[in-house]
Lab assay of single mutants.
Amino acid sequence: MTYKLISNGKTLKGETTTEAVDAATAEKVFKQYANDNGVDGEWTYDDATKTFTVTE
């Protein structure tokens, strides 16, 4: 399945996607992506749209 990340960081804003077997796997990928880009904030997940959002 395709999962989307919306980043509302102070230094990184935008969207990216990943293919993953489940939401937990996608979350690990996205949290590593955010960490690699210096984004640390509040996370939410919408199962209906398969979208994670991180806001700093």
Rank of each mutant, 00 (worst) to 15 (best):
N8A: 10
T16C: 15
A48I: 11
F52Y: 05
W43F: 05
D47R: 07
D40I: 14
E42V: 14
L12T: 07
W43L: 03
F52C: 00
A34W: 07
L5K: 01
E27P: 00
K10P: 15
K13Q: 12
K50A: 05
T17R: 08
E15N: 07
W43E: 01
V54P: 00
T55I: 10
F30Q: 00
T55S: 09
T18G: 03
V29Y: 15
F52I: 01
A23Y: 12
A23Q: 11
T51P: 00
N35P: 01
T53A: 04
A20S: 06
T18W: 07
M1V: 13
A20F: 04
V39D: 02
T49Y: 04
A34G: 03
E27F: 15
D46I: 04
F30H: 00
A26F: 00
T51R: 03
T2I: 14
T55W: 12
F30D: 00
T53R: 08
T2E: 07
D46C: 09
L12K: 08
T55D: 06
E56Y: 10
T25E: 14
A48E: 12
K31C: 05
N35L: 15
S7Y: 15
T11I: 12
E56V: 11
G9A: 13
N37E: 06
N35E: 13
K31D: 00
T49G: 04
L5R: 00
K50H: 12
E19Q: 14
K28A: 12
V21S: 11
V21W: 12
F52T: 00
V29S: 05
T53W: 10
T25D: 08
T17V: 09
V21N: 10
N37P: 01
Y3A: 02
K4G: 03
E15P: 09
N8V: 14
T53F: 11
E56Q: 10
E42I: 14
S7M: 15
D46R: 03
N37W: 12
E15C: 15
T17M: 09
G38Y: 06
Q32P: 01
E42A: 10
T2G: 04
N8G: 05
A26C: 01
V54C: 04
T55M: 09
L12H: 11
I6P: 01
E42C: 12
T25R: 06
T17P: 02
T17D: 04
D40F: 15
K50M: 09
T17G: 03
D46S: 05
G38E: 06
K4C: 08
K10D: 08
V54G: 00
A20D: 02
K10W: 10
K4D: 02
L12A: 06
D47T: 07
N35I: 15
N37V: 09
D40Y: 15
A24I: 10
L5S: 01
Y3T: 02
Y33P: 00
M1Q: 14
F52L: 00
T16A: 09
G14Q: 13
Y3V: 02
E42T: 13
K4M: 08
T11E: 08
D40G: 08
Y33C: 04
K50R: 14
K10Y: 10
D47W: 08
D22K: 02
D47I: 08
E27S: 06
V29W: 15
G41L: 04
S7C: 15
D40C: 13
A26H: 00
T18Q: 05
T53C: 08
G38V: 03
I6C: 07
G9R: 05
V54W: 04
T25V: 06
G38C: 08
A23I: 07
D22H: 03
G41Q: 03
I6V: 11
Y3M: 02
F30A: 00
Y45M: 00
E27K: 09
K13L: 12
A24V: 10
T17W: 14
Y33A: 03
G41V: 04
E19H: 13
Y3L: 02
L12Y: 12
F52M: 00
A48T: 11
A24F: 09
K28Q: 10
A23W: 13
K28Y: 09
A24T: 09
K13N: 10
T49C: 04
L12N: 06
A48Y: 10
A20Y: 02
T16D: 03
L12G: 10
V54Y: 04
Y33S: 02
A20W: 02
F30C: 00
N8Q: 11
G38T: 03
G9Q: 05
E15I: 14
G9F: 13
E42S: 10
K28W: 09
A34C: 14
T16E: 05
A24E: 11
K4P: 02
G38R: 05
E19Y: 15
E56W: 12
K31W: 06
M1S: 13
T11V: 12
A48L: 13
T11K: 11
D36M: 11
K4L: 08
A48M: 10
T18E: 03
T53N: 04
E56I: 12
K10V: 12
W43M: 04
E27T: 03
A24N: 08
G9S: 13
T17L: 10
D40M: 14
K4E: 03
T44V: 08
T51A: 04
T2H: 06
G14N: 11
T25P: 01
N8Y: 14
A26E: 01
E19C: 14
K31G: 02
T51Q: 04
G38S: 06
D36I: 10
D22I: 02
M1C: 14
T17Y: 14
D22C: 05
W43K: 01
E15Y: 14
T49N: 08
D36C: 11
W43A: 00
K13E: 07
T16W: 15
D47Q: 09
G38I: 04
K4V: 11
A23V: 11
S7Q: 08
T53I: 08
T55R: 07
D36K: 10
K10N: 10
V29H: 12
F30M: 02
M1N: 13
A23T: 08
E42Y: 13
I6G: 02
A26T: 00
G14A: 12
A34L: 11
G38F: 06
T44N: 08
K13R: 14
E27G: 06
K4Y: 15
D36V: 10
E42N: 09
Q32M: 10
Q32W: 05
T51F: 01
A26W: 01
D47S: 12
Q32K: 14
G38K: 06
K28V: 09
V29I: 15
T11C: 15
K50T: 03
T51N: 01
D47C: 07
T53Y: 13
L5Y: 03
F30Y: 01
T53M: 09
T55G: 05
E15V: 14
N35C: 14
A48C: 09
A34T: 06
A20C: 09
T49P: 00
G9D: 04
G41H: 02
Y45C: 01
D36P: 01
Y3W: 06
Y33G: 00
T11L: 11
K28L: 11
A23S: 09
T25H: 12
G38H: 08
N35M: 15
F52W: 06
V29R: 09
D46H: 05
Y3Q: 02
K10T: 13
A26Q: 01
G41R: 02
D46Q: 04
V39W: 14
A23K: 13
N37F: 10
G9N: 08
T17A: 06
S7N: 05
T44R: 08
V39F: 11
M1R: 12
A26M: 02
M1D: 13
E42G: 05
S7I: 15
M1I: 14
T51W: 02
G14M: 14
E15S: 10
E27W: 15
F52N: 00
E56K: 06
T53E: 05
A34V: 08
K10G: 11
G9T: 15
G41E: 01
T49K: 06
L5P: 03
T53K: 06
A23H: 08
N8F: 14
S7H: 14
T44D: 08
A24Q: 11
G41K: 02
T18H: 06
K4H: 13
T17Q: 09
K28E: 08
T25L: 06
G41T: 02
V54F: 14
T18P: 00
